[in-house]
Design a protein around this nucleic acid. Sequence first.
DNA 1: GTCCCGCATTAACCAGGATTAATCGATGCC
DNA 2: GGCATCGATTAATCCTGGTTAATGCGGGAC
Lengths: 193, 193
Amino acid sequence: MPGLAAETLMNRVAREPLPDWRVFADAISVSRVAAGASVFRPGDQDRRIFIVRSGLIKLVYTLPDGDEWIKSFIPEEKFFACSSTLQSGAAAGFGAEAMEPSELEHCDFSVLESLAGQHIEWARVMNALLLDFAAKKEERERVFLTLKPADRFMWLKSTMPRLIERVPQKDLAAYLGVTPVGLNRIIKRLEKT
Amino acid sequence: MPGLAAETLMNRVAREPLPDWRVFADAISVSRVAAGASVFRPGDQDRRIFIVRSGLIKLVYTLPDGDEWIKSFIPEEKFFACSSTLQSGAAAGFGAEAMEPSELEHCDFSVLESLAGQHIEWARVMNALLLDFAAKKEERERVFLTLKPADRFMWLKSTMPRLIERVPQKDLAAYLGVTPVGLNRIIKRLEKT
DNA sequence: GTCCCGCATTAACCAGGATTAATCGATGCC
DNA sequence: GGCATCGATTAATCCTGGTTAATGCGGGAC
């Protein structure tokens, strides 16, 4: 399994060689998903962890009235999972959909659980990944809590400049908690200065 | 050290007896803070983890213009920490302040780090705590992303009914991302139906 | 008891984003 | 090429919450 994105990911957080690496690597499969295809849907119980090898995934809350709000964008070498992966029993409140043709590495979470149960090195890696994840969610909380829509866009511009080129404006809007028309107006307003 | 809140907390997430429990218990001190007193301030580098034995703490973002937004409320038997605890180096972007006279158990995070480094049982507990924390932040993300201010109050009412009795309306407002006047209007509007 | 002070309440006015709808442009399909 | 579709843009109108300010209320300090 050459050049696993999972390896890059784990190496970034691991501070030591990981025992039984092969057990993990061998458990990984790779799938291709077309742009627009969904990886899992709200309500699914999927216990896999996914690592994006190439492409771009969005995690989406869909409201009863059909509105869609984007929880997060997952680009290359980042990971994501359905809620039931980490809290078994829980069903996902959100779905995952490819925004570009994507290659996903995935493995059953039980493999990681068992490695973390056996080796403290793996437990530490899980810890680091969780910490990273928690920090991101905390930052997002800060953005929603302390920034107005227009400032949220400025924040997006300075922290994820690539994304702005890469995804349609309406999706940026859904990520920032604004309507597409609203975001467009904000952008035009900013351009005038 | 009788009836540690820390013990209740750890027992809730641990699925097995924790080795070297005494090492942890002996590292804990208890402090009293008066209502209104601050536990740490934005910018502090505090590497302690705090467990609320009694009372109520709020974590607060303070903006340059003086506005205050509440990141979270920490009631009895829950824990909190400054950002630098988990990501050493980072300074807290928020402060912690007692809303009621409170008793806090606290211990240096390095003690937990070292226990987690030695015993996989402790590593698993850290994992469970982090997971719990991440889930809470994720839920908060969902609330801000998919709910309008008025619906956010409804959500608060159904998920934290106690809190509504316990804290001033203006703090509920700061928690929900609305101004005090705004929240009051929402509440009155709801009462009329 | 009286005085203060912080919080809740209310009202008047403002503003920024939501909504609706129409137009335009680019892309992909046939 | 012609057509359908989707997203971006723009405009008109609405609405909710922000802002400011005044009043009231209740608890604590003295």
